[in-house]
Every structure is written in structure tokens, then in C-alpha cells.
């Protein structure tokens, strides 16, 4: 960005005395700032005396928030139903104020809201499902990066203790005490009215392992979710934390590096190898 544009962009921000300096007094500007803040407060919290029509803005806000949550958390919506999602949206608006113009970036703390709600005692898996879905929602907004195949030369040129690996921005691992990936799969297709049979949900819970480990990433074919063993999960965790290939191979000998590397390139997990 040119310095000129940078200057202009900063002038768009709040607390800018330059804004309208030649036209507006600071007092007028402050007064309008207060009025607009007050209007937004009124939309968020009903007042005893307010002009008719304020409730339209309030309802719009809740409806938009509910729609945003339904898009980010489609499986939770199926599990809880639209009315519960509206209640959660209303509560979450009090806890997590929208800071961006993009509603897709709002709603990250729904898992915490669920943990502190009465839902959690009876359905303790819901909070993890919320975390899992937010992870998916976020990775679907990640860029698709290719693999720098040239960096493979580093494997031949340097000892493994000097090398690390960088993953595509969307890749992450997820662990839960509940079978959230299986539950999500069960609720596909994500069309609004499709619900799995109760017996199928019961089977998933009754056959679950102690922990469910998952790998999530985005490639040209779309969202990918793969089940991992505990050792594979640790392997990815170590690499994501920036440990050297040598350290990771030592810590998780159950994973065959050559085979993993072939998979990694084929599946689109990597962006490059690098010298640490």
C-alpha cells in the first residue's frame, strides 16, 4: 500500500480528529459518536421507552446471528433445532460482540457458551461438536496452498534434525472424548431436514473409543476428515509445534516416515520442508 493510501485508510478509523475537520467540530462528531453508540446499545438491550421500530432492528440482529450460527454449526442446528439455536444466538450476542462486518467470523465462542449452559450436563458432547464445527468452518475459509516440490531436495541435502515441515494453513488435528467426527458424518447430508435414525446415533455412542482423533484439511476436492491413531495424532501435533523431523521420528516410532511422506504429498497436507 502506498503511504498516501495508508494515510487515507487510517483516516477512516475512529478517533480521527482529521475526519471532517474542516466541516465538523469535534463536539459535533463526538455527539454523533455517542448517539450512534446509544442506538446500537438500544438494539442490543431493550429500553423501557423506545421508538416503535427498534424491535425490528433487535429481531433482525437475532435472526442474522441465528443464521450465522446455523451456517457455521449445521450439525449442532440439526441436533438442537432452530429454536434452541435462536436462544443460543441471543445469548452469544451478549457474550461475543460482533467486531467485524463479516458474520462468518462471529460465533467462535459458542463451545464455551454451551459448557456454561444447562445443555452441557445432559449433552456433554455438544461443546466438542461446537469446537469441531468451528474448526471446520474456519478451515473452509483458508487459502488453498500448493506444495513447493523443490523443498524435497532438502531431505537429501541436510540431516533430519535440521529440517521441519510446514503444513497447508487449513490442516489441523482434533481430539475429543466423544465421537464428533462420526456424529458429523452421520448427520450428512447437511440438508436442513435430514436427520439420522436414533438407533444409528446410539450405535456411534455405544461403540466409541476412549478418544477420537481426527485430521482435518482442505484440498482441491474440498474438506477432508481422516481418522487418526493416537500415535499419528502425536506425530502431527509435534510437527505442527515446529519440532524437527528427527525429533518427531524418535518420539513416534510407530509412524513410518517414508509412507507418511508419500501420503502427505498425495493428500495435499504440505506446503514445504524448511531448514530450521
Amino acid at each position: 500500500m502506498s503511504p498516501e493510501l495508508q494515510l487515507n485508510a487510517h483516516a477512516c478509523q475512529a478517533d480521527s480528529q482529521q475526519l471532517s475537520q474542516h466541516l465538523l467540530s469535534q463536539e459535533q462528531l463526538n455527539q454523533r459518536l455517542q448517539q450512534q453508540r446509544g442506538f446500537m446499545d438500544e438494539v442490543m438491550s431493550p429500553q423501557e421507552s423506545e421508538p416503535p421500530g427498534m424491535n425490528v432492528y433487535r429481531n433482525n440482529l437475532i435472526m442474522t446471528a441465528e443464521r450465522a450460527l446455523s451456517l457455521s454449526y449445521p450439525v449442532l442446528k440439526k441436533m438442537l433445532g432452530p429454536e434452541a439455536m435462536t436462544i443460543l444466538a441471543r445469548q452469544l450476542l451478549q457474550q461475543e460482540t460482533p467486531h467485524q462486518g463479516d458474520w462468518a467470523e462471529w460465533g467462535s465462542s459458542l463451545d464455551w457458551l454451551i459448557v456454561s449452559s444447562e445443555l452441557h450436563e445432559e449433552h456433554p458432547y455438544l461443546a466438542d461438536m461446537a469446537s469441531f464445527e468451528w474448526r471446520i468452518h474456519s478451515l473452509l475459509r483458508s487459502p488453498l496452498n500448493g506444495f513447493a516440490a523443490d523443498s524435497l531436495r532438502l531431505l537429501a541435502a541436510h540431516p533430519l534434525q535440521q529440517l521441519g515441515v510446514r503444513f497447508v494453513p487449513s490442516l489441523s488435528v482434533f481430539v475429543s472424548e466423544y465421537p464428533v467426527a462420526q456424529l458429523r458424518q452421520l448427520h450428512r447430508p447437511l440438508q436442513e431436514h435430514y436427520l439420522p435414525a436414533e438407533s444409528a446415533v446410539f450405535d456411534v455412542f455405544s461403540e466409541r473409543a476412549e478418544h477420537e482423533y481426527s485430521l482435518l484439511w482442505l484440498n482441491a476436492a474440498g474438506l477432508q476428515i481422516q481418522s487418526l491413531s493416537e500415535a499419528e495424532y502425536d506425530w502431527f501435533q509435534h510437527l505442527l509445534q515446529g519440532q524437527s523431523l528427527d525429533e518427531v521420528i524418535d518420539a513416534t516410532p510407530q509412524v513410518d516416515f517414508a509412507r507418511w511422506l508419500s501420503n502427505a504429498i498425495q493428500c495435499g497436507w504440505l506446503t514445504e520442508f524448511y531448514l530450521r
Binding site: A14, S20, Q31, Q36, W103
Partner: peptide
Amino acid sequence: AEGSGWRHAGDLLPVPMDSVSLDI
């Protein structure tokens, strides 16, 4: 503007149609 942070209304909120709004 909320202190050092920002709040977004998530809706199209009306401005008074006066000279102050016009200047802004």
C-alpha cells in the same frame, strides 16, 4: 468505537438526515 476496539451492528442502522451525517 468502543475504547480501543470496535463494535459492528450487523445491520443497516439509520442516520439522521442532517448536515452532520452528510459531512461524515
